[in-house]
């Protein structure tokens, strides 16, 4: 069972309190009705599924109920960091070489 730090509660809590909510930083287009088929496909269907670092959304559903973002390594399951929803994708990860 993973330990996940909720950026709102500011503490690590067991995985049972959370639910994964898919890839992060996919913003719903502001004028979605005007999107082309290709753009809508990219927005709705296409996901990265990387081996390594993934930016994903979690919800502290059995806690504060907030959605937030996390950076996780899909190989080791290690959480690099978590941050609040709406905050930009971190330019630099803690522990990264540059």
């Amino acid at each position: 069972m993973l330990l996940i730090r909720c950026p709102y509660c500011e503490e690590e809590r067991p995985e049972l309190e959370f639910r994964n909510a898919g890839e992060a930083h996919i913003a719903r287009p502001t004028n979605i009705a005007a999107e082309s088929d290709d753009d809508f496909e990219k927005f709705f269907f296409i996901r990265a599924n990387p081996k390594g670092v993934i930016y994903e959304r979690w919800r502290h559903i059995h806690g504060c109920a907030r959605f937030f973002n996390a950076v996780r390594d899909t190989v080791t399951d290690k959480f690099v960091m978590t941050y609040k929803a709406g905050e930009p994708k971190p330019a630099k990860l803690p522990g990264a070489s540059k």
Partner: peptide
């Protein structure tokens, strides 16, 4: 509903 309200 919460998802859209909180994130979109």
């Amino acid at each position: 509903m919460e998802d859209y309200l909180q994130t979109e």
